[in-house]
Amino acid sequence: MHIAHLLASSMGGIRAAGDLVARMQLSKKMRITEAKQYVADKLHVTPLDLSDPTMMRALREELDIGVITGVPGIAKGLAAKARIAELLDIEINCVEQFKKKTGLHY
């Protein structure tokens, strides 16, 4: 059933930019149109591009915010989220916890 919903309606997560739009819904309670526009502005693309895996695959690699396939050297996990927090100008809880634990500030 998950696959049926993904095919019919989903933004595609880190295949495209669904994770970024989801972050704006969670952290700022933005509705879908506002959340897409916010992310699109930050990425200098259109809202339509955010669901396009072809467009977003290359852009995510260029921005170094994590990609869906295994590419050596590209930011993964926490490193990718630290870059996403900076890109979207939001706080991501686990990134903040990491800073606290390590004493690193940037």
């Binding site: 019919a8 989903s10 933004m11 669904g18 739009v21 989801a22 879908i32 339509l48 669901s51």
Partner: peptide, 28 residues
Amino acid sequence: IWGAQRGNEVVMTKDGCVNALNSSRMSS
């Protein structure tokens, strides 16, 4: 199958973690 118009896609949130993978028929 049918789908939303391109550009109208939305984000998915999920309940029940990965029960659909490793649980019983109760969670599909």
